[in-house]
């Protein structure tokens, strides 16, 4: 029984991690990317907890009046607590950025956000968006500002 349940638990954790990573890389929706991050972090936290688990042991807390028993490894549990809080901070920050992006660009579509960001970045740098056919830096002068696409507001 034990021989199967360990790999099974690990598969569950690894599956969550894989689902999350797939979602982060393939999703094109900002909010879903954040959700995928949450799933991936849950998966990796489960993996950490499993790293210190013992079949024959109890939680690592001494109870008054109970004889000493084998206990599970307390270190991964502490690590997971730390990792969860770190994850919450990162997720909250990601959501504040999503709120602002939605306000500024009016969309949550990653491809669109990225395209408009590249135009803006290029405009801020004084150059052109990538993919321009002009000569590289230091070559001849670039066309006037009129040639730049106006960053949409």
């Amino acid at each position: 029984m034990d021989a199967y349940i360990g790999p099974l638990l690990f598969l569950g954790a690894a599956g969550l991690l894989a689902i999350g990573v797939v979602g982060m890389l393939l999703s094109n929706h900002l909010f879903r990317m954040v959700l995928a991050l949450v799933i991936a972090e849950a998966g990796v936290n489960l993996m950490l907890v499993l790293a210190g688990y013992r079949w024959d042991a109890v939680a690592p807390i001494l109870q008054p009046g109970v004889a000493a028993q084998p206990m599970v490894d307390p270190i991964p549990q502490a690590l997971v607590l730390t990792a969860i809080v770190i994850g919450v901070g990162v997720q909250a920050l990601a959501l504040t950025l999503v709120i602002r992006i939605r306000e500024a660009y009016g969309t949550l579509d990653m491809a669109e956000v990225r395209a408009r960001m590249e135009v803006d970045v290029a405009a801020a740098g004084g150059g052109e968006a990538t993919g321009s056919r002009e000569r590289p830096a230091g070559g001849r002068p670039l066309p006037g500002p009129g040639a730049l696409p106006e960053p949409p507001r």
């Binding site: 900002l30 500024a104 990225r114 960001m117 803006d120």
Partner: peptide, 11 residues
């Protein structure tokens, strides 16, 4: 806006 988008992608 570009800073927010770049920061999000970086994050």
């Amino acid at each position: 806006p570009a800073a927010y988008a770049a920061a999000f992608r970086y994050l």
